[in-house]
Design a binder for these strands. Structure first.
Lengths: 168, 168
DNA sequence: CCTTAACTTCACAAATTTCTGAAAGAAGCG
DNA sequence: CGCTTCTTTCAGAAATTTGTGAAGTTAAGG
């Protein structure tokens, strides 16, 4: 049970409360399809005061190996949910949740949607646009195209809403 | 290689084209987090002319056991992506994609969102609304609440859009 | 009622995924 | 340049998930 004094900040936070949140939140992400380690790492970052942690801190807090941290972080960076930064003049890397950047990523299932659309388009042509099945696929495709446009507009509105509510 | 003459309809469909679509589409769903069997079953239903298939037909087309069909269908029904119907006077059950009903369900990640929100709310109070971490969680929570409202409005607009484009 | 057709549940084998320890690979610092 | 500190990669052990066969359950039809 070693505690790392990582942040120079004064107020000690209740590590148990943090852990409870992290695990609970991660469990929801897992249920929604995310892998366990990425989910936990992401939770830990969200719940950190600085919004960023080093690899060692993550390993310590979550009781996982450096290898596990590495894998989780690679995934999270790939889907743009965290960014990596190197403190200049150190081999230590920090991983950060970028305030806004990340829920942009959450909605950036766009890549996913695009591939659904491709599959559907292919289906429409190969089954025939004039068959009942083809028509069903076409309608589904139309739905996704609709959603894609709408989500974009929604994020625009969110940025405005956010500005008003949280300043900055 | 046995073909079932299931639909009384005349035009034979190319089973290979259907299969190609089903597997491709299912693969995308899997990548997005859905289990393989539910994804394949759902694909098969989407690609069927009647929009409905019996358990036996699904097993035949996808080359899976009745048990697998049962499990997949149970899941799909639970999340309202298909509905089950019994042809009156028969033990045979049919599973159907309900045209509209199902993408309502897709957006009905609402249940999921609700639980994310709960976890976040808990986090805000337990970490303290006045801490940096607490503020970050609160903002994230606000985002989800925003999305929830927006999605509802979006679906309303879709119904209108759909009506215009596909009649009925 | 009894038979039989259909669906479901359950225990287990197989396949897949997940995480680790160990070794290899970068990059600051002397 | 070599040493040291951190991160990544890789092979494999452990755990989990997935799909099956077989037994169990339900309900139609004689």
């Amino acid at each position: 049970m070693v505690r790392i004094m990582a942040e120079p900040s004064g107020t000690a936070r209740d590590p148990e409360a943090v852990s409870r949140f992290v695990e609970h939140f991660a469990a929801q992400l897992v249920e929604a399809g995310m892998q366990r380690m990425p989910a936990r790492v992401f939770g830990a970052l969200l719940a950190s005061d600085a919004g960023a942690l080093t690899s060692a801190q993550l390993g310590e807090q979550l009781q996982i190996s450096p290898a596990a941290v590495s894998g989780a972080v690679r995934y999270l960076a790939q889907v743009h949910m965290v960014s990596r930064e190197r403190e200049p003049g150190s081999r230590r890397e920090r991983y950060r949740v970028h305030g806004d950047q990340w829920y942009e990523a959450l909605t950036n299932r766009e890549a996913v949607i695009k591939r659904w659309e491709d599959a559907l388009r292919e289906g429409v042509t190969s089954l025939g646009a004039d068959t009942p099945a083809g028509r069903r696929l076409a309608e589904t495709l139309a739905f996704f195209e609709f959603v894609e446009k709408e989500v974009e507009a929604m994020m625009e509105r969110w940025r405005v809403h956010r500005e008003k509510r949280f300043g900055q």
